[in-house]
Structure formats: C-alpha cells, structure tokens
Write a protein that binds this DNA or RNA. Structure first.
Lengths: 130, 130
DNA sequence: GCATGATATTCATCTTTTTGAATATGTTTT
DNA sequence: AAAACATATTCAAAAAGATGAATATCATGC
C-alpha cells in the first residue's frame, strides 16, 4: 500500500483551510510572509508553520530579499486541481444520480459457471495488480 | 475559518491510498464490494470502512441487488481532480524553478511613503476579505 | 557588536485519523 | 425459521495532525 505516496503527501498538504487560503493568496504571484500576516490576520508563527507544510510538499519555494522572504508556487498546475475541487464542492449535494450503469465486472460476477454458493476465487488468480 | 468546509471534506476523503485506489477501481464503472475485496486482497470490513468515508463525502452512491451492494461514483468530475493530482505528483521533484516573478503586492510593500521601520497597517484597512 | 524587524523552529498538548477485532444487519436459499 | 453470505457498524488503541507558546535564526541599521 505504498502506492500513491506522493499523491497523498500533496493531498494532505492541501487538506487544510489555512493552506488552501494561502495558495489562493499566492495565485496572482509571490508574496512575503508579512503580506499574508496582514491579509489574514493570523499569527506569524502560524503562517510560517503552514508555509512549511506547503514547502515540504514541494508546492512552494522561497526567496529571501533583505528583511522579507517571498514565497511562490512552484507548480501552477496545482490550480487546475484546486479549480476542479471548487467545482465539485459547489455542485449541489447529491445531484439527481445518473441511471445505474451496467453490471459489475467483479471477478466473481464474471465467473461463467458462477455457482451462487461458492468461495471467492483465490486472490492470486484474480489480482493483476489492479 | 469556516471557509472551504466542503473542499476540506472532499480532500480528506481523497487523502488515503486505499480510497484513491478504490476510486481508481471504480473509474470504469460500478463494482460490488466483493469485487474490491478480491481485487485488492483487503479485509472486507476495511473496504467497507473506506467506502463509508467516500460515501459520506458524497462521492459514492450504492445500489443493492440481491446479495451484493454495488458502488458507483456520483461525481465523475472527481477524476479531473485525480488526473491533475497524478500529473503534479509525477513531475520530477522541484523542477528548474521559474525565474523569480515580479515583486510582492504586500500592503506594506505597497505603501507609497513606505518608511522601512514601520508597523503594519491595521488589518481593517487591509483585509478586503481576501 | 547590539538592538530591531522578519521569519523559522521546537515543544507540548489536544484532537482527529487510522485500522484491527469483534459484532451487527439484511438477503437469499433450503 | 435456520444457515450461508455479503456487507455495515461499533469499539478501542495507536498514529498522525493541529496549534498555542516560547524561542531561535538571520539580515539590517546604528
């Protein structure tokens, strides 16, 4: 179950209101920490913590200039994901569900001589690594 | 900070390898629990738990047919998000970072008479609700 | 070098997630 | 109704995440 390691790291970094808000604030371009501090009215340390998470996930890079540290998004593609997220979240709850699709392709359901009282086939015969 | 409630619920539902894998398995269409059980080789109760999370997030619906319960994705748009996720995750670590973008639009940085030793402007003057 | 401003990190605590184990629910066949 | 099956739910312990408080780092101006 070590699949999706990168994906999960990324998703977890995004799964926080403050971090989503920060990414939104960075959409137009880079910003220094003091900007975010003033914009959101959060404690400096708190913002720094969240920036750390986003940076650890590889989403942000920083650049020092005198007193200030400027953060920027390193993967603008993240906004494609975020936009999709908003779209899905906004659509009214459980829409008028589509007509039930065709029947299951389950290995068991597929068995030709599918006797109804039967143990599952052994996993080895069935699992072509998804 | 009650913003993004729906978004966070959705992201958290996705932030789990087993659940991502399940959604992947459901991409071609609906499947019964025994299918997933055989496909992944996980405990039945475990799969049911993960399905519950996805259902609670409004991503899945179920349909009973005799012995089996068939699950299907109610919001195919989720795959747009997942595809974006994979794309971002696969791109090699921190790509050759783009040239540092233009300077910060931070309220402080914007102040015309920006005296360098100055307190931040009061938040009320600055925070137009992001 | 020292004081100050901006940002980062560590620590401790509290809450949430994860996941195995046990058990419950509901359906079908006999 | 009882047995067999498929799936769902509850519980508890361990792991991970969130966050306030305190403190550290590092650049700048004197």
């Amino acid at each position: 179950m070590n699949e999706y390691t990168n994906e999960i790291t990324l998703l977890k970094a995004l799964s926080h209101p403050a971090r989503l808000a920060i990414l939104e604030a960075l959409r137009p371009g880079e910003a220094c920490v003091c900007h975010l501090e003033a914009l959101f009215g959060w404690r400096q340390a708190y913002i720094s913590q969240q920036l750390m998470v986003l940076r650890a996930a590889g989403l942000l890079a920083d650049r020092r200039e005198g007193w200030n540290v400027y953060y920027r998004v390193t993967r603008p593609e993240i906004y494609t994901l975020i936009d999709a997220l908003h779209q899905i979240s906004q659509s009214g709850e459980t829409a008028p569900l589509p007509i039930p699709p065709p029947s299951c392709t389950c290995p068991r359901c597929q068995e030709k001589g599918a006797r109804r009282f039967n143990k599952h086939p052994h996993l080895e015969e069935v699992n072509p690594t998804l």
